[in-house]
Amino acid sequence: MALILKAKEPFRFYTRLHLSELTGLRATTLDQLVKLIKDVPGSCIYHHTHRFLQQHQFFSPEPPNDFAYWVSEILGEKELGERLASIDIMQFAKIHDLRERIISVIEEYLKEGRFAQLKFAREGEEFYFIKSVSFVIPTNHVADNLADFVEIIKKITFDSIYFHIFEARLRLEKKANDFSNWIENSVGNKELADELAALDPYTRTLDDLRSAIISIINKKLFEQ
């Protein structure tokens, strides 16, 4: 039962709670949207590319960014909406790079000579820029081995899963998620670490993501 051997370092679970801070900035047209995307803080880009995941954690996967939703549903630019929704966020290790990609997708679309520049949102349906203020707090949950780890995963909040999978990876600019890092470096199971790192969290609900993590680890425990 190698997988329940004590890890080199214990894994301390953190939780990350967020508060939405309003900026008072709003866009009515695509031109305004792209201009503001260039100027707003990174925490705004983070908020609008990750908000759906938390607010609709039980819904079937939603377009994981607010820009895609607004462009499609409010401006009626379905094609651009699809292009924005299909940006592969997993590719980006930095918010800066994700921001650049969003800007280039919108600017390319505008250059294609469509009438998109003429579209504007009705009053009250403008795009409102919001930023996330994150509070990172250590929880009382600590795992010394994989068996404990999977038991804790079953009961921690979505916020905690979110912190270790999304926040650590992108906002805090770590290359892989925290779970994979620990399993590779402290448990010493690179194969399992790689399997968890390969999960695309952006196309699942948080509930499904939790189940997938539990299932992958349990499978390894069972194989032992």
Binding site: L19, P41, K131, S132, V133, F135, V136
Partner: peptide, 20 residues
């Protein structure tokens, strides 16, 4: 309740990522 408590904490922290 959670949001209000975070709001109260934010009055003592100006940064975007707060480590408590």
């Amino acid at each position: 309740l959670r949001d209000y408590m975070l709001l109260f904490l934010s009055l003592y922290h100006g940064e975007d990522v707060v480590y408590l």
